[in-house]
Design a protein around this nucleic acid. Structure first.
Length: 467
RNA sequence: GGCGGCUUAGCCAAGUGGUAAGGCACGGGUCUGCAACACCCUUAUCACCGGUUCAAAUCCGGUAGCCGCCUCCA
C-alpha cells in the first residue's frame, strides 16, 4: 500500500509519490549546537529516524540529510560566556548530540552538513538572489525581499498582509520592509566572520538550510521535516529562498511534529523545566524514552511526566518479556506441534496491521498496538505444551523486524548466565524437587536481591534481570 | 486581531460517517508448592448545546475550557 503523509502544505494526507521511483530524499532541520539537546529536540530526531526506517523497511533507497547550524547569535553568546572559541563549543555539542541520539536508537544521517563548511555555497546562493532582485544589500547586511515572492505564506497558510501586523520593526531598521529577513549579517566587532562581497559577516538563520538541502539533495527534495514551530518563519523563508533561486518546487511534502510539555507546561527557561537528554538517560533507559515518544502520534503534543514514562516502561517490559519467553522456549522446543500454519498466519496478520498503521501517516501508536497483539499471540502460543521451532523463530523474526522499524530492541542484552546464578538456580530446583520450599524461596529471595527474577515454567526455570 | 490545534474509561492513547483499538493501573478467575510470567473476564456512548443523516466520537453551526504560531524556539 502507498504511504500516506500529512503534508503541511495542503493540510491533508496525501499518497506519497517520490520524485524518483524507489528513492526518497529527506531533509530534517537539525539543531543549533550551543547546548545539550533537550527532549523536545529529541522528538523530531526520533520521529524522522522512524520515518526513515519505515521507508527503508518498505524497500526505498533513502538519502537522509540533517544539518548542524554551527554559527548564529546564540552560539556566539554561549561561546563568549564559556570563554571558548565558537568552533570548540560547537564541536563539543556536536559530539554530545551524536552520543545522545545514538543512545536514543537513532541512526546518523547520511550527511550532517555544517553551515561553516558551506560558506562559499551560501555566498553564491545569496549573490544569485541579489542578481534576481529577490535580495538587496543594506549596510553590510543582505535582506530577502519577502513581498516579491508570490508564494510567501503558502506553508503557514498566512496571508502576507496578516503577517505584517505582527512583524516587529526594530530600531535602526535597515530593511526596506519589516517583513524582509536577513540572509547575511554584518559582523559586529570581535564576532566570528567570513568575507563576502558585502563585507565581513555571517549567514542569517534560514539560508543555510536552503543551501545545504540543495547542495546535498538537489533542487527539489521529497520530504522536508522539522518541529511545528519551524513552520513559520523558518520553513516559509526556506521556500522563499529556494524557489526564488531555482524556480522549482523546493520540497514536495512537509512534515511537522508536535511539542513536548513537561508536567503539562511548556518547557521554558523561566520555568527551569528543561529536560536534557544527556541527563535523563542516566536515570531512564533511553529505549523507554523512545518507546514513550512513539506511543503518541507524531503530530500530537506529548506530555512528559514521571508516571506516564513509568507506564510506558511497563508496556515495553511486557514486550521484552514476551520476546525473551519465546527465546527461552526456543532452547527447549520439542517440535511436536503440527498446526504451525495457523500461527504463522496470525503473525502475518499482525505484520499487516503494523504496516497499515505505519502507512497511515506513520501512526506509530497503532504500530505499537500491533506489537502488543504480537506479544499476546506469542504468549498464547507459549501456553501450548508443544511448540514448533519455525513458529517460534517467526515470532522472533517479526519482533526484530518491526522493532527495527521503530528503533526499539526487544532483545535484552546481558543475558549470559553467570556461574553463581546458574548454581543457585540449580540448587533451588533441587530443593523444589525435594519439596523443600523454605529453602527454595530463600534462594529465590537471594537472587531477587541480586536483581534476578525467576520464573518457573514447564520447560524449566527461566530468569531475567529486573528493570 | 489573523491562522491553527486540542477536549475519548482512573491515567495514557488510537479511531475522522456505520453503533468505541491498544497500553498502564484496578478488580475477579485460571495457571503455580507459593510467587513471577502469562492467559481469560470485567471497566467509556467520546467537553456541552443544536443541526444534517437511515446512521456521528467522527460532518455543519454554536458554547465552554486548554494550547500553539504570527520572525529566539524541535
Amino acid at each position: 500500500m502507498t504511504i500516506q503523509i500529512f503534508n503541511s502544505l495542503s493540510r491533508q494526507k496525501e499518497p506519497f509519490v517520490p520524485l524518483e521511483e524507489g528513492k526518497v530524499k529527506i531533509y530534517v532541520c537539525g539543531p543549533t549546537v550551543y547546548n545539550f539537546i533537550h527532549i523536545g529536540n529529541a522528538r523530531p530526531v526520533i520521529v524522522y529516524d522512524t520515518v526513515r526506517r519505515y521507508f527503508q523497511y518498505k524497500g526505498y533507497d533513502v538519502k537522509y540529510v540533517s544539518n548542524f547550524t554551527d554559527v548564529d547569535d546564540k552560539i556566539i553568546k554561549a561561546a563568549n560566556e564559556m570563554g571558548e572559541e565558537v568552533s570548540e563549543l560547537t564541536e563539543r555539542f556536536i559530539n554530545a548530540y551524536f552520543e545522545d541520539i545514538t543512545a536514543l536508537g537513532c541512526k546518523k544521517a547520511d550527511v550532517h552538513p555544517r553551515v561553516t563548511n558551506h560558506m562559499d555555497d551560501i555566498i553564491e546562493f545569496i549573490s544569485v538572489l541579489i542578481e534576481k532582485d529577490y535580495a538587496y544589500e543594506s549596510q553590510g547586511d543582505v535582506y530577502y525581499r519577502t513581498r516579491k515572492f508570490d508564494g510567501y505564506g503558502k506553508l503557514s497558510h498566512q496571508s502576507i498582509d496578516d503577517l505584517k501586523v505582527g512583524a516587529r520593526i526594530e530600531a535602526g531598521e535597515k530593511k526596506d520592509d519589516p517583513l524582509d529577513f536577513a540572509l547575511w549579517k554584518a559582523a559586529k566587532p570581535g564576532e566570528i566572520h567570513w568575507s563576502s562581497p558585502w563585507g565581513e559577516g555571517r549567514p542569517g538563520w534560514h539560508i543555510e538550510c536552503s543551501v545545504m538541502a540543495r547542495e546535498h539533495l538537489g533542487d527539489t527534495i521529497d520530504i522536508h521535516a522539522g518541529g511545528q514551530d519551524l513552520t513559520f518563519p523558518h520553513h516559509e523563508n526556506e521556500i522563499a529562498q529556494s524557489e526564488a533561486y531555482t524556480g522549482k518546487t523546493f520540497a514536495r511534502y512537509w512534515m511537522h511534529n508536535g511539542y513536548i510539555n513537561i508536567d503539562n507546561e511548556k518547557m521554558s527557561k523561566s520555568l527551569g523545566n528543561f529536560v536534557l537528554v544527556h541527563d535523563i538517560r542516566q536515570q531512564l533507559d533511553p529505549q523507554v524514552l523512545r518507546f514513550f515518544m512513539l506511543s503518541v502520534h507524531y503530530r500530537h503534543p506529548i506530555n512528559f511526566a514521571q508516571d506516564l514514562v513509568e507506564s510506558a516502561k511497563s508496556g515495553l517490559e511486557r514486550l521484552r518479556t514476551a520476546y525473551s519467553n519465546v527465546q527461552h522456549r526456543l532452547t527447549t522446543t520439542t517440535d511436536l506441534l503440527d498446526n504451525g500454519d495457523e500461527w504463522t498466519q496470525k503473525i502475518a496478520e499482525v505484520k499487516k496491521q503494523f504496516e497499515d498503521a505505519m502507512d497511515d501517516d506513520f501512526n506509530t501508536a497503532n504500530g505499537i498496538s500491533a506489537l502488543f497483539e504480537l506479544a499476546r499471540i506469542a504468549n498464547t502460543y507459549l501456553n501450548e505444551s508443544n511448540t514448533e521451532e519455525r513458529v517460534l523463530k517467526a515470532f522472533i523474526e517479526t519482533f526484530d523486524q518491526l522493532g527495527e522499524v521503530l528503533g526499539i530492541q526487544f532483545k535484552v542484552e546481558n543475558h549470559i548466565l553467570d556461574d553463581e546464578i546458574e548454581a543457585l538456580i540449580e540448587e533451588r530446583n533441587n530443593a523444589r524437587k525435594n519439596r523443600d520450599f523454605a529453602k527454595s524461596d530463600e534462594i529465590r529471595d537471594k537472587l531477587l536481591a541480586m536483581n534476578i527474577v525467576l520464573e518457573d515454567t514447564r520447560q524449566g526455570t527461566r530468569w531475567k534481570r529486573g528493570l
